[in-house]
């Protein structure tokens, strides 16, 4: 069941959805979603500069470390006041300015989705991983991809994605364990 704007506001007021650093402005809501904004932090993947050399990532390899890989093959970037231009075909990691927490007891999960204002320019903000699981805490990572033919400038603080909140059916195992931690339960 998807939450409406009134239910999202109610969940925020009752701390079932926690958002920092500030409560969303009224204009951040639509009937069934809440807009989030872009932080200034980006991570930009490097391209091989050596002719004839291809980078191949093998995440299924035992011992593979995304962190080790990303430290070598990506650069941190802070979006300045003049924004950041997403070139056609580029792929960049970003994050929302807001930190979201969905307490496990709230029986809520969410999906992060793009906004049509960016989508119509060819900008996608996730790559098939939109689920914000019950219990999630933190800023939301965005996977920017410019599928279009235009150079598109993004600015920190701009509405960049929307969250659609859904009620879960029941409490996940980890919430159950936490709720009754230390007790013997017969289920």
């Amino acid at each position: 069941m998807v939450l409406t704007d009134r239910e999202i506001q109610s969940a925020i007021e009752s701390k079932q959805i926690k958002i920092e650093p500030q409560l969303p402005d009224p204009e951040c809501y639509s009937s069934t979603s809440l807009d989030l904004t872009l932080s200034k932090f980006l991570r930009i993947w490097k391209k091989s500069k050596v002719v004839g050399v291809d980078q191949i990532v093998s995440p299924a390899t035992p011992g593979y470390s995304f962190n080790d890989f990303s430290q070598v093959y990506s650069d941190p970037h802070e979006i300045g006041d003049d924004g950041f231009v997403l070139e056609p075909g580029s792929f960049v990691l970003g994050w929302t300015r807001e930190t979201i927490e969905l307490p496990i007891s709230a029986r809520l999960a969410a999906r992060v989705e793009g906004k049509s204002s960016l989508a119509r320019l060819g900008i996608g903000i996730h790559v098939t991983a939109p689920t914000i699981h019950a219990g999630f805490k933190g800023p939301i990572q965005l996977e920017f991809c410019n599928h279009g033919t235009l150079r598109v400038r993004i600015m920190h603080g701009m509405p960049v994605c929307q969250l659609i909140f859904e009620q879960t059916f029941g409490t996940p195992e980890k919430g159950y364990k936490g709720q009754f931690f230390g007790q013997e339960q017969s289920r």
Binding site: S39, F41, R43, P62, G63, S65, F66, N67, S70, S74, P76, L93, W95, T99, K137, G138, P139
Partner: peptide
């Protein structure tokens, strides 16, 4: 440290010896 300030990278030893790496909120 993770890819941005609010993120940390934790490595955890799995029973059996291998290492699992996870990017988490710094609050975790």
């Amino acid at each position: 440290d993770g890819l941005m300030p609010a993120e940390k990278i934790a490595r955890i030893q799995v029973a059996g010896g291998s290492i699992e790496e996870v990017a988490v909120s710094a609050d975790d």
